[in-house]
C-alpha cells in the first residue's frame, strides 16, 4: 500500500462544496497507479469535472488530501503550486487554445512553467524545446500547420494541439476533461487513440473524464463510476455490468 502511494496519485476524503452545505464531492478516496488510462464515468453534474479540477487546483477543494508521487498538492500556494501544476498536463473539452496564437506557440504554452519570462516574451525558447515541440506536432500529424493560427484549425486538429501542449509539459499525470465531447464520433475515436498511444509511449498515467461508456470500455484499463459525488464502481472494463451502469446513471430504460 505504501509503495503504491509513493508512485501515482492518492486522493483521501476529497470534499468540494461550491455552496456551503451542498457538497458536489462527498469524501472521495481514490488511488491511481503511475501508468495506464483510468476512465471516470458518471452522469452530468456528478462532479467528474470538479474531481479533475481539484487535482490541479483549478478548483479549490473544501477538504481532503491529494498527493502526487507522495507530494501533497492540497495546500500548495504561489510558486510551489505552479511547480506542481507544470507536472500535471490537462486536456480540455473545448480545447482552450489561445486562438490568436500560432499552433507552435500554443504547443510551447506547455513550457511556460519552465521558461523565464523574457524568453517567453521574445519567443526565445531553448532549441531542445522547439525540437520537442516539432516532434510532438509530428506525432499528432500537424507539423506543417505549426505557423498557422489556432483558430484556422478544425475541432479534431485543435484537440490534437491540446494534447501536444499537455505532453509538452513532460507531465507525471495527464488530466483529460471530456476531451472528445465536442468532436464527431469518428474524430473522437481518432483523438482518443492518439491520446492513448502517446501517453502510453511516454508512460504518463491518464485520468479521463468521459461521457461515452463504450469509448471508456474500449480505451481504459480501469473504470471509475461516480454517482452523487462518490465512487460507486471501481474495476476493469470487463467487470462493468448493466447493474453497475444502473447504479451509476440510475433508471434502466436507457440500457
Amino acid at each position: 500500500m505504501s509503495a503504491a502511494a509513493q508512485r501515482g496519485l492518492e486522493i483521501r476524503g476529497l470534499v468540494k462544496e461550491y455552496q456551503p452545505g451542498k457538497p458536489v464531492l462527498r469524501g472521495l478516496d481514490l488511488d491511481v497507479a503511475a501508468e495506464g488510462i483510468t476512465a471516470v464515468i458518471g452522469p452530468s453534474g456528478t462532479g467528474k469535472s470538479t474531481l479533475i479540477r481539484c487535482i490541479n487546483r483549478l478548483v479549490e477543494p473544501t477538504a481532503g488530501e491529494i498527493r502526487l508521487h507522495g507530494q501533497a498538492l492540497t495546500g500548495l500556494r504561489g510558486r510551489a503550486l505552479r511547480l506542481a501544476r507544470r507536472r500535471i498536463g490537462m486536456v480540455f473539452q473545448e480545447y482552450n487554445l489561445v486562438e490568436r496564437l500560432s499552433v507552435m506557440e500554443n504547443v510551447l504554452c506547455g513550457r511556460l512553467g519552465y521558461t523565464p519570462l523574457w524568453r517567453a516574451w521574445l519567443r526565445r525558447y531553448p532549441p531542445a524545446d522547439i525540437e520537442r515541440a516539432f516532434d510532438l506536432l509530428d506525432a499528432v500529424g500537424l507539423s506543417e500547420h505549426a505557423p498557422r493560427r489556432a483558430d484556422a484549425l478544425s475541432g479534431g486538429q485543435r484537440q490534437r494541439v491540446g494534447i501536444a501542449r499537455a505532453l509538452m509539459q513532460g507531465p507525471d499525470l495527464l488530466l483529460a476533461d471530456e476531451p472528445t465531447s465536442s468532436l464527431d464520433p469518428k474524430t473522437a475515436v481518432e483523438v482518443l487513440e492518439l491520446l492513448v498511444r502517446l501517453t502510453g509511449a511516454a508512460r504518463v498515467p491518464v485520468i479521463l473524464n468521459i461521457h461515452n461508456v463504450e469509448l471508456a470500455r474500449r480505451f481504459a484499463q480501469r473504470i471509475i463510476g461516480m454517482a452523487g459525488g462518490v465512487i460507486v464502481f471501481d474495476g476493469p472494463p470487463e467487470a462493468l455490468e448493466p447493474g453497475h451502469l444502473r447504479l451509476i446513471y440510475g433508471g434502466e430504460d436507457w440500457l
Binding site: S102, M104, E105, R123, Y125, P127, A133, A146
Partner: peptide
Amino acid sequence: PAAPLRREWRR
C-alpha cells in the same frame, strides 16, 4: 551533428 536536421521556429 544533428544541427542541420534541427528545425528552426520563428514567430
